[in-house]
Amino acid sequence: MEILFWLLPIPLFFLFGLRLPLLTEIAILALFALSLDLILGYAGIVSLGHAAFFGLGAYTAGLLAVHGWGEPITGLLAAGAVATAAGFVSSFLVLRGSDLTRLMVTLAISMMLLEAANRLAWLTGGADGLYGVTMWPIFGIFEFDLYGHTAYWYSVIVLFISFVALRAIVNSPFGLALRGVKGNPLRMRAIGAPVNRHLVKAFTIGAGFAGIAGGLLAQATQFVSLDVLAFHRSAEALLVLVIGGSGAVYGGILGAAAFRVLQEWLSGITPQYWQFWLGAGLIVLVLFARGGLIGLWRALVRRLHRTRDEEAR
C-alpha cells in the first residue's frame, strides 16, 4: 500500500506532464503542511504564523542563489538551518502562554518578518519579489529545465526524505511523548516529563522542515515574493491539515493534493470565489468531519473490519 503510494509520482509524471508545476507545488505544500502537523497535530501547539519559517527558508535559499551560490542541496540545507535556528529562538516566546497567546505570538512573529522583508527591499526585492534566482544543476548533473521535470523530481524526493524523517520522529518515544503533552500536560508533568523541552524541540524541528519547504519553493520556481510570509500561507497549511487530517502523517499529503486540485478546479469555474467555497468547506469540515480525509478513511476501514468480523461469525 505505502509503496504503491510512493510510486504514484511516476505515473503522475507521465499522465500530467503539462501540469508538473502544479504537482511540484502540491509536493511543497505537502511538506509545509507536514512540518506544521508535527507542531500542531502531534505537539498540540497552535500556530497562525508558520509561514514565518517557510518564508525564512525561501529567502535564505533564494538569496544564496542570487548572490552566487546556486548549489541546490546545500542551499536547501541552509534554508532548513536558518529556519531551525529561528524556530528555536522564537519557541521560547511562543511556548510561554496559553493557546490564545500562542496564536497571537506566532501571528505577530510572521507579521514582523513580513514587514521586515517588505522594508528591506534592497535585500529582498520588497514587493517586487526577488528575481535572479539561478540554480546550478543538482549534483552538477540535473539542470533545472523549462518544463519543470527536474524541479518535480527534486521536490518529490525531498518530500519523501522529509516524510520518512518526520514519520520516524512521530513513531519514536519522542513522538509518544509529544502525544502525551498534547493529550494531558498535567499528567506529563506528574510523570516527570520535561514538557517544555519536548515542545521546544518539536517547534524547532517543525520550523526547520518548514524552512526546507520554503527553500524548495524558491529553488523550484526560481523566485521569491513577499507572499511566502503572508498570513494566508499560514492559513493554507492549517486548511490542508483540516482537509487531510492532522496528527496523521499522510494527512498533510492527501490534504495538499485535495486542496490544490480543488483550488484549480473551483477557481477555474469562478475565478475569484474559490475563497468563498474554501471558507464554506472549512466550516463544514470543522463542524462535521473533524478527522479530515484521513479520519474518513479510518472510519471506512473500521467499518470494513467490523462487517468482516460479523461475516466471520
Partner: peptide, 27 residues
C-alpha cells in the same frame, strides 16, 4: 488524569521512558 488517546500500554511505557530519560529518543 490519563491519556485518552493512548492505550494503557503506551501510557505506562511513556512513564517508563520518561523515567529513564529515553523519551527524547527520536530515531
Amino acid at each position: 488524569q490519563l491519556f485518552d488517546e493512548m492505550t494503557p500500554l503506551e501510557a505506562v511505557a511513556l512513564a517508563v521512558l520518561e523515567r529513564d530519560g529515553k523519551a527524547r529518543a527520536m530515531w
